[in-house]
Each structure stands twice: as C-alpha cells, then as structure tokens.
C-alpha cells in the first residue's frame, strides 16, 4: 500500500532516552518528550474517556499529576502537557457539575439572572486556585467576580477561550461550576449586549422574499461551460 512520502516511522528510542512515569501508581517506561496522552497510549492504554480532539480544543483530557520532589498538585490537559521523568498522573475523565436550565430568549443580561441560576458564586473566596488551575491561562477568578457584578461583557472577554475542561471546578474550595456560569454570561452578552447585524436581517428577508431564486435556478440549470465562464469572470472583493 502506498504511504505518504513525508511519513516518518518513529522507532522506539534507545534506553537512555526512555523515562519512567507512573500511571495511576503503576510504573511504565516511555520515550521522553511525549505528551501525557501519547505516553499513556504508548504504555498500552486504549482510551475510551479522557480523549477527544487531541489538540487542546475540547477539554476532554483533564489530568492531575505530581512531579518528583515537589509536593504540589498540578493539573493540565493530557494532550498538551509534556511528561516529566518520575511524574505520577491520573486522568479526571468526568467531574460532576450542574447546569442551569434556562430559555435564552426570555433571560436578561443582568446580575439577578446570573444569581438566580448560580447563587453560589457569591461564596467565592478569592483564593485564585481556579485561575492557577486553568490550562488556558484564563483569569477565572476575575470572570467569576465579573459575573457577580453582572458584567456579562467582561465575563465574555475573560472566558472566551474556556474549553470547559472542568479543572477549575475540580479544585474550587467554594464548589463553583465556573464554566457553566461563563457560558450563561457569554450567551446573554452575545444575545443582548451586542448589536444585531442589520445586513444579516436584511439578507434573510430578501431571501425569504425570493429575491435570489431566479438567479439560483438559472445557475442550477446552466450548462457546465457557461457555469465555468461565469465562475472565471467573477470580480474579487479586495482583501
């Protein structure tokens, strides 16, 4: 079978490039410089949970670990964090978090609305543990504080890159559900805080009125030569 010319078959490296890591307490020898995810696979695991996009985008692979000679608990994404010799890892494939049920079309972008669904955010101790835990380096504590003020715009700005991995939730002494608070605020801001796109509403109306139907029908029926010609004679909007 043909294979990609640029494919590189990676060989198991020599022994001095192998390191020990401990997966849930069990020792495995794995090549250095792998991500935690690939190291666990190399060790022989076949993921069901704890693995999604494999690219830092989905938040499926929350992992807690300790490194040698350091008492601190560390957390990160298994698909993005490189292994260290002697580290102990375990994944957190699921961490419970309740979600408010709401109808965005009837909600309001106010502090009352946010507190109605998540009154416990008032318990925040301002300890910044959530912020330190966040693999996206978000100012998690500040977005919770912004939510407490009902500043949904600021929550949107500070939490936009949240991938809902739940690491903040797993560490918070006040037992908050940060990422669910954040998405509520973002949806409220997008729906009520931002201006609607007028050109969009106009175009939707034009389409409903059938403005483009004839042109489109014509293109659907056109013979291919004419279609290619129409394509090649398009003008381009400047970049």
């Amino acid at each position: 079978m043909a294979t990609e010319l640029n494919r590189v078959e990676r060989q198991t490296p020599p022994d001095d490039e192998m390191v020990s890591i401990f997966v849930m307490g069990k020792e495995y020898r794995v090549p250095d410089a792998l991500t935690i995810m690939k190291a666990i696979e190399y060790a022989g695991y076949h993921f069901i949970r704890g693995c999604g996009c494999r690219g830092g985008a989905c938040g499926a692979c929350a992992t807690v670990y300790r490194t040698a000679d350091n008492y601190r608990i560390k957390v990160g994404l298994a698909c993005q964090t490189l292994i260290e010799p002697g580290m102990h890892v375990t994944q957190i494939p699921f961490y419970p978090a309740n979600k408010a049920i709401y109808d965005v079309s009837e909600a309001e972008p106010t502090v009352e609305e946010v507190l109605k669904h998540y009154p416990e955010i008032a318990r925040c101790l301002c300890c910044e543990v959530c912020t330190r835990a966040c693999p996206q380096d978000l100012e998690v504590m500040y977005y919770i504080q912004a939510a407490l003020r009902g500043d949904v715009k600021e929550v949107s700005r500070l939490s936009f890159e949240c991938i809902m991995c739940g690491l903040c939730v797993s560490r918070c002494p006040a037992e908050l559900m940060h990422y669910n608070v954040a998405i509520l605020c973002r949806r409220l801001y997008a729906r009520y805080g931002m201006k609607r796109a007028e050109h969009l509403a106009n175009r939707v109306r034009e389409i409903e009125e059938g403005k483009f139907d004839e042109e489109l029908d014509e293109l659907v029926r056109m013979d291919e030569k004419d279609l290619v010609r129409a394509y090649e004679s398009r003008d381009f909007e400047e970049a």
């Binding site: 965005v104 973002r186 949806r187 801001y189 729906r191 931002m194 201006k195 609607r196 796109a197 007028e198």
Partner: peptide
C-alpha cells in the same frame, strides 16, 4: 441568524453590529 439568536459570540463591529 439562528446562531446569533442563540447567543453565539460572532466577531462583530462593536458600534453597529456589522
């Protein structure tokens, strides 16, 4: 428009929503 209604944060002009 369906997404805008649902509260998807599109990149828009702050002033006029374009």
């Amino acid at each position: 428009e369906w997404l805008e209604d649902m509260g998807v944060l599109f990149d828009k002009d702050e002033e006029d929503g374009t």
